[in-house]
């Protein structure tokens, strides 16, 4: 059984008076340590799929399981615990807390888990090459630095699965490549599985497997 499974997962959103189908009966399986890219045009439901996979959102139909556990049966608190310990997130728009320094943003999952942060945080920041920017606020960083900080935050708790939603979408091509290199390297380092949503074909090509998301379904 795969680390992450989506069985017949559907998700709809209400827009005014209409229902928009974001995902329609998606079937997906990712094994431990696997690197999978999810490609599709804007609005194809990539972010929605990642949110479902990470327990941030709930499907309307179907089943999402992580390591054999049905995320739908977990409480809000249990899902949050999962995201602190076993699932990391990297977002397109970085989503760093603007009032926290780089070190404090990276430490957040550990602090939320009630753990001491110092050693792991320093190491992870060093691994992404941000040691000299550790005490800076997000507003003082470049786009690439912010995304590296976000990667560090996602990896500090040594998760088993990392979900990356267009991690280079907001970066220029050179910075994007650089960030992607860091992401892939560090994910391999911790031995996590990586599911990366992207519309960049070149970025997608670095994965071991590429899935296409179109009209709410994966092929």
């Amino acid at each position: 059984m795969g680390l992450l499974r989506l069985d017949g997962v559907s998700k709809r959103f209400r827009r005014g008076r209409e229902d928009v189908v974001a995902l329609d009966g998606v079937e997906l399986e990712i094994d431990a340590g696997e690197f999978v890219s999810l490609v599709g045009p804007s609005g194809s439901g990539k972010s929605t799929l990642l949110h479902l996979a990470g327990g941030i959102d709930q499907p309307d139909d179907g089943l999402v399981t992580f390591d054999g556990r049905d995320l739908g049966r977990l409480s809000v608190g249990e899902r949050a615990r999962l995201r602190r310990k076993e699932i990391g997130f990297v977002f397109q728009f970085f989503h760093l807390i603007p009032t926290l320094t780089v070190a404090e943003n990276v430490a957040l999952p550990l602090l939320l888990d009630g753990r001491r942060a110092d050693g792991a945080v320093a190491d992870t920041i060093a691994q992404v090459g941000l040691s000299e920017r550790a005490r800076h606020l997000p507003g003082e960083l470049s786009g690439g630095e912010m995304q590296r900080a976000a990667i560090a935050r996602a990896l500090v708790a040594r998760p088993r699965l990392l979900l990356a939603d267009e991690p280079t979408g907001n970066l220029d091509s050179a910075t994007g490549k650089e960030v992607l290199d860091v992401l892939v390297t560090e994910v391999l380092e911790v031995g996590a599985a990586l599911l990366m949503a992207t519309h960049d074909e070149r970025a997608a090509g670095r994965a071991g497997r590429v899935l296409n998301l179109r009209d709410g379904n994966v092929s």
Binding site: G77, R83, F91, L96, R153
Partner: peptide, 9 residues
């Protein structure tokens, strides 16, 4: 963001 990285209650 805090909720997404596991903030919970």
């Amino acid at each position: 963001i805090v909720a997404a990285v596991g903030g919970g209650r």
